[in-house]
Design a protein around this nucleic acid. Structure first.
Lengths: 365, 365
DNA sequence: TTTAGTAACAAAACAGATTGACCAAGAGTT
DNA sequence: AACTCTTGGTCAATCTGTTTTGTTACTAAA
């Protein structure tokens, strides 16, 4: 039978409430009593019953992480484990636990109901939702604090994001500067904002460089390897000389397709990805890519959520984390520029933006 | 303010206990009352407070999943997301939730303490622990039910596993049958049983084929791509003509190394992996591999744990799931056998074993 | 017609924390 | 000396369910 507060109180010769205050760092306990009780708690290896604590205090110190159903890249993209690691790290540090909901079409409604209604978690982090996913409005209508990773249209909420559009704009500019002229893209799923924004960034760059958009050079992908492969296959007939792939995994698929077609990267076709997953630096050729701080986004989401929970703030916060363009060999044309050596050249994106974006900016409430 | 049992009771004109009975499917409620109360619960969208329920009933309907710190493949191997998906699916189906503990060296002790001591979860699933990880004894000494994925030496516990040794034995036999003679291996981390068992299976096959073991043909890896790359690099000087890589990701690293060295798979070197992750069928050449039912293992672990929790069984159960050898192009020597076509030939492993292993076998308690 | 048994529900006792109200003792003021 | 603060604590209410015990009304058996 596990110990209770009552037991500890009896052993230390104080009342239950005093022990509770010691545990909760209430300052109305004399240092000497505090020390004595703490020692006993330590000695007896006592942990308070979280259910009781949750019932009495109204909070559980648990954050929910919802990963929606129907995300094809869940199994193949290291994005999710890295994100989870970030959330987990931040939670560990602040004595929160992580409740994982990989939702399932069949159980989605019930799952979210449970999460929202029955006080299992103090707040929720939502990762890569589809545009218009009902979970957003469910959460918005509840009084449960939540943070969305990746902005959503028409939704005032707490958001952690990177500036996808701007980042891709820059990366595409880089391709243009390298002398590529028929620049194509394999998009992400266009039912996710990240997919849409990255496509817009690509368009922005071409337009502002005075190049014309050719719809035949845009292939829709879905952040998977297979999506990259088939996207590339579709593009090949229109002879692009460079491709922006909306994720690194997509780029890997494109490389496979190009290898099969006997085309060489970067000489025949330049390639840029997005994410900078571990494999990007080891693939041949190593992949030029836009690095986003995936783990950092997980941590930021958890930290923001915890802050909101504990402060009870009703404002909406948007945090945009910085990206960098990591230049490797997949864009190093022999004929046009000198071949880049193995070492990576990291070009940090606009400095001011980084500095600004690190701050939490309250938006309308 | 959310509704409580009391509210529902008042609305339906019965007592709190009756509402509780309705929710918990206690049969001592007349059908007509039950229907009326159920309707009200539905109408008012009532969900019971889980903290209160946990306090009163002593269980939370939450399973913990512990992924230990210091697993380098966590970020790069799709193993973990797939496993989690399995656990999650099984839990959803039975109204359990999943609490994720990606433990962190720094917080490990506290984390496990919390998990074990304060009734946050009803049971724990432990994935890929290191041999001798103290978490095992901590759990074994607690009265918290737990299931380990992947057997551990000297530990009587509930285990979900595949027969790594036997599966690798078969796969290596297949290499031998294909005519390869200098068969090397890149192992997994030898501080995990899966790593050790797969190495033993490799040795078994060579020995029982009357071939002699050459320690220079054994390179230690760690289930990562980089491990495969450097392992292959180390092996190359001893001129193997086939390699068993202890995971598919490891095999990908080996392929990269071989490409750089100008060697072709399968003609110069045959290659077999383990797992059958999605990428294995799309990589060039497609990878012959031992498929293990990762998602199935997650589901099995959750189902077993829930069964143990609800039955209160004190016996230890071991469930071994079947594997299959999936033959693709990385072992299809042109000179020795006819080239295998694109379609996969799936050779199911010893049939009897599969049938046996699907049963839960109680072991000594 | 009792008596026992049972069905259907209510009432009340928990479960193990948190937290506001209250109180005693000593310190500081005037 | 009387009064007010502050400090450090105790007491008891509270949170929302589950579960045991109690009560009533009815049916079946003696």
């Amino acid at each position: 039978m596990p110990l209770t507060l009552e037991d500890i109180a009896k052993i230390s010769g104080v009342s239950r409430s005093t022990v509770s205050r010691v545990i909760n760092r209430d300052r109305r306990v004399s240092p000497v009593t505090r020390e004595r009780v703490l020692k006993i708690i330590e000695d007896y290896n006592f942990y308070p019953n979280l259910a009781a604590r949750g019932l009495a205090s109204g909070h559980t110190n648990v954050l929910g992480v919802v990963i929606p159903a129907g995300v094809p890249s869940l199994f193949t993209d290291p994005y999710f484990p890295i994100l989870l690691q970030g959330v987990s790290t931040a939670c560990n540090r602040q004595d929160y636990s992580v409740m994982l909901s990989i939702s399932d079409v069949k159980f989605e409604k019930r799952l979210v109901g449970r999460l929202v209604q029955n006080h299992l978690v103090d707040g929720v982090i939502v990762a890569s939702t589809l545009i218009g996913d009902p979970i957003q409005t469910t959460l918005a209508n509840s009084d449960l604090p939540f943070v969305i990773i990746g902005r959503q249209p028409n939704l005032v909420a707490n958001v952690i994001d990177v500036d996808n559009r701007q980042a891709v704009h820059q990366a595409t500019d880089f391709l243009i500067k390298q002398g590529y002229t028929r620049i194509a893209t394999i998009t992400g799923p266009l039912n996710q904002m990240a997919g849409v924004d990255r496509l817009e960034g690509y368009k922005d760059a071409l337009i502002s460089a005075g190049m014309k958009l050719d719809p035949r050079l845009i292939a829709e992908g879905n952040f998977t390897e297979a999506g990259g492969y088939f996207g590339m296959k579709a593009l090949l007939q229109f002879m692009p000389d460079a491709v922006f792939a909306a994720s690194d995994v997509t780029a890997m698929g494109a490389i496979r397709c190009l290898n099969e077609a006997g085309l060489r990267v970067p000489d025949d076709i330049g390639l840029i990805g997005f994410d900078d997953i571990p494999a990007s630096s080891t693939v041949t050729p190593s992949l030029t890519t836009i690095r986003q701080p995936i783990q950092g986004m997980g941590e930021a989401a958890a930290n923001l959520l915890i802050e909101i929970i504990e402060s009870g703030s009703k404002e909406s916060h948007c945090i945009s984390l910085p990206t960098e363009l990591v230049i490797r060999n997949s864009t190093a044309r022999v004929n046009h520029n000198q071949q880049l050596k193995d070492e990576e050249i990291v070009q940090t994106m606009i400095k001011e933006e980084i500095e600004n974006s690190l701050l939490t900016r309250p938006v309308q409430s």
